[in-house]
Design a protein around this nucleic acid. Structure first.
Lengths: 157, 157
DNA sequence: AATGAATCATTAGTGCTTCCAACGATTCGT
DNA sequence: ACGAATCGTTGGAAGCACTAATGATTCATT
């Protein structure tokens, strides 16, 4: 949707689902640009952040904790390992597994990404007052929780 | 993100950009399912709705008004024309153009889609009170407006 | 201990939406 | 009449999420 130049008073533009997806599109673009300005993308950040807070772990475990699909972990780790941000070593205690761990460079990259991310939040919410920001966050949390319960985390197993 | 089964207390999950994109993901899924239950998708709805409120027009004009990229209009119109929901006729006054118009069947389909769409809004906002729904809508509108001004509608020409 | 079930890493491929680049054909501006 | 702009079309890219299949390894049950 690069060019809504001609007056576009489409009535559907006031639907919550539209407002939500379009605003999210802007958010996604902001964050994506922020990440790519340091040569990364969303999956990279999520994996690095998960690694820091879980410590070294197998790809499958990291996938579960970060919400990244097993099959996408492979490429993500490959890319990060190419840049020496992450290390992949076989697990001696379980030869099916690789143990992934964060390098010092990876930690530095993570700091950069966190900084960008914080800037993006501010840019995203620029027109809102602090109270409004908190209100929005709370409403969205409730919605997300509700829908995650219904579909996302089926409490499986 | 099908499987966040293992406790996933990732701290980034409280960031507005995350809440926004994830909630939007649910919204998108809800609406997409609603549409596909009558054999359509988002672009179909947007084009049909735009056609009804603008009347017959060229593909380029419809693209501008609906926010659908020129290159995506082709496939969208092909699909709708296959189902006789829309008609594509050469414009005698400008041989570069096609004139696209809505058929009776297209109008009926539009009514169906609007119905689904309304149902989806309700499902999407289920956990919120009427006041909260309005508050959310207003906050999102402000955000969207702000960002559209900065990037979306460059007031070009 | 043996066997079937589950887990792990990997490859390959799908879908959706948005966008870009390029192309001929046609029309417009000057 | 000329170059510039517009129109339709094709083909491709990216990001995110997900599906299916495979071989290797480990686990759980009898």
């Amino acid at each position: 949707m690069e060019n809504p130049s001609e007056k576009t008073p489409a009535w559907w533009e006031s639907l919550p689902s539209w407002l939500l997806t379009q605003t999210a599109h802007h958010a996604h673009r902001l964050v994506g640009d922020g990440f790519s300005s340091v040569g990364a993308r969303g999956y990279h950040y999520r994996l690095l952040a998960t690694l820091e807070e879980s410590g070294p772990a197998s790809q499958a475990a990291l996938g579960r904790r970060s919400g990244i699909h097993l099959s996408d972990m492979v490429a993500t780790i490959n890319e990060l390992a190419d840049g020496k941000l992450v290390e992949r070593a076989p697990d001696p205690s379980d030869r099916r597994r690789n143990v992934i761990s964060l390098t010092a460079a990876g930690k530095r990259q993570l700091r950069r990404l966190e900084k960008r991310l914080a800037e993006c939040q501010d840019e995203l919410l620029a027109p809102l007052s602090p109270e409004e920001r908190q209100g929005l966050t709370e409403l969205l949390s409730r919605l997300l929780d509700h829908h995650n319960r219904r579909t996302g985390t089926p409490e499986e197993r």
